[in-house]
């Protein structure tokens, strides 16, 4: 069993599969995620393949703010992914809600719903930054495989450490 496990773990790290979910993004970050797959940036040289099924995926790329309707979808996709998994929040909106945090239908950053491992800043995030983020997430998956980092189960999400809670601006429903 040990040999087989080693083989699976090795192939997981050498060829991680990502699933992308657009969670209320303006498309700016989405097209940059897709641009990563194209010949100029070529994510596939790291063995990274974009898949449509969350059950096949190791890394979840989330772009955009979470709103009241899609938070259930995001949670659902996250829960379907097998352990060990990593979540990359892409763009300013995914980190904190960005310029939309005052809108009535916006819950906030991705970390309000699911635990996030890597934050990629930028509006929109550049393909180079996204590739960097995915590679960082892989290090985390590796640490999880070796038992150096805790597995992220579907526990209720808490804001990441060192990231202060964004105050909602005062908008009165008069």
């Amino acid at each position: 069993m040990g040999l087989l496990n080693n083989l699976i773990n090795k192939s997981r790290l050498k060829s991680p599969w990502v699933v992308h979910y657009d969670c209320g993004s303006c498309n700016g970050c989405d097209i940059e995620v897709l641009a990563c797959l194209t010949p100029v940036y070529d994510l596939e040289r790291f063995g990274i393949v974009n898949v449509g099924n969350p059950k096949h995926a190791d890394v979840l790329l989330v772009t955009g703010t979470v709103n009241k309707r899609n938070k259930a979808v995001l949670k659902n996709i996250y829960d379907q992914m097998p352990e060990p998994k990593a979540v990359v929040a892409i763009g300013t909106c995914g980190m904190s809600g960005g310029m939309f945090r005052e809108c009535y239908n916006v819950v906030g950053g991705v970390d309000k719903v699911i635990p996030v491992d890597v934050y990629v800043p930028g509006c929109p995030a550049k393909p180079e930054a996204i590739i960097d983020g995915v590679v960082k997430a892989l290090e985390l998956v590796k640490a999880k495989l070796e038992g150096k980092a805790p597995q992220s189960d579907a526990a209720p999400a808490e804001p990441a450490e060192g990231k202060p809670e964004e105050p909602k601006p005062e908008i009165d429903a008069a």
Partner: peptide, 24 residues
Amino acid sequence: YVHRGLEMLSRVRDMHQMIYVVER
């Protein structure tokens, strides 16, 4: 699934800042 309600932001942001909102 993507509704943010950014038309409402025109009451919070001034008209020059709104350019950057409508771009998004």
